[in-house]
């Protein structure tokens, strides 16, 4: 087990290095991706461009440049090309905001996802199952950006038909917990809808599969109540695959997956920072945010594998 974890961590570091290299490649090697040219603007002289290239170290060996950027990033000295702000500071600033958004949304999508899956499986084939399944399908067919805009249009701001919520923005939890909750409620649901639909569907099919397993028949033969079988046996077994999904989805939402929701609601988290940097084609922040996101994904992938082995003893980690 120890050796397995050490090997995995080593592999994770390699993947992160490769991720950073690819991001670097995307922005430097692809034709037209020269940051100096972009910073200099359209009317720059070759002299201007050369001067900028030199000041950024872009006239040096390619591998060296990439390594240089990584060292700067890990010593928290990397600065944006566009406005000279410190990338690590900016990510740190956005972190509590993105965490608030992601964790709240995750709680909502897990809770509702389990509820949707459970109800539709128990009522399989009946009208309520059909209605819930259809709603879940609609949930996974909605573009997040549009859902956010529509919710904002109807439920937020002064123009809204039912203006119950503030129109975007964010209030820190430490500043005012009530306002924090109030401001995040719409973004949470916007982010969660897709996952509620998705998890509900997965759970429904898992439950329907598990119901036919032998251990469920045994439990029934023992004379356990249906409710007890459902919650203690069926649901527990059916939730194992959900754990995998949840770990990966949560990591990707933390690591920049909330970018669209944050943009729609003007929540200045990590995703919003990435979106801003993309507008100005600013490599250092994108490098920082992508590595930050990839880190969450690889760490959670490991955690998911460990949790999976722990929940299902038949799985051996090799």
């Amino acid at each position: 087990m120890g050796a397995y974890i050490i090997r995995r961590i080593f592999g994770m570091l390699l993947v992160l290095l490769a991720v950073s290299f690819i991001v670097y490649l995307i922005f430097i090697v692809i034709p037209g991706g020269d940051p100096a040219q972009r910073i200099a603007g359209k009317v720059a002289t070759p002299g201007n461009i050369r001067a900028i290239r030199h000041s950024l170290g872009l006239d040096q060996n390619f591998i060296f440049q990439w390594w240089h950027m990584l060292t700067l990033l890990f010593t928290a000295k990397l600065k944006s090309y566009a406005n000279q702000t410190n990338v690590v500071d900016q990510i740190k600033q956005g972190l509590p905001i993105t965490f608030s958004l992601s964790i709240g949304a995750a709680i909502i999508w897990m809770g509702f996802g389990i509820l949707v899956g459970l109800i539709s499986a128990v009522k399989a084939g009946r009208l309520s199952d059909r209605v819930i399944t259809a709603l879940a399908l609609i949930g996974i067919s909605l573009p997040v950006a549009w859902l956010g805009l529509v919710l904002r249009y109807f439920f937020a701001g002064e123009q809204g038909t039912l203006a119950w919520f503030p129109d975007g923005g964010y209030v820190a939890l430490t500043q005012n917990p009530v306002q924090w909750f109030y401001h995040l409620l719409l973004p949470w649901f916007t982010l969660a809808v897709l996952f509620i639909g998705f998890y509900g569907r997965v759970l429904r099919s898992n439950i329907l599969d598990t119901i036919n397993e032998d251990f469920v028949r045994t439990a029934k033969a023992k004379g356990l109540t249906t409710r007890r079988i459902l919650v203690k046996h069926v649901l527990r077994a059916s939730l194992i695959p959900i754990v995998t999904l949840f770990g990966l989805d949560f990591a990707s939402v933390l690591g920049g997956g909330a970018i669209i929701t944050e943009t729609v609601y003007q929540i200045h988290g990590v995703g919003w920072y990435a979106a801003q940097s993309i507008g100005s084609q600013d490599l250092p922040p994108l490098m920082g945010v992508t590595l930050f996101g990839a880190m969450f994904i690889v760490v959670f992938t490991l955690l998911v594998d460990l949790a999976y082995a722990w929940l299902d003893p038949r799985i051996r980690l090799t």
């Binding site: 993947v15 690819i22 970018i259 990839a294 994904i297």
Partner: peptide, 13 residues
């Protein structure tokens, strides 16, 4: 490797 990227970030980049 591709899996480790946040999908939307890689696509945008």
């Amino acid at each position: 490797l591709i899996w480790a990227f946040p999908v939307i970030l890689l696509a945008i980049a």
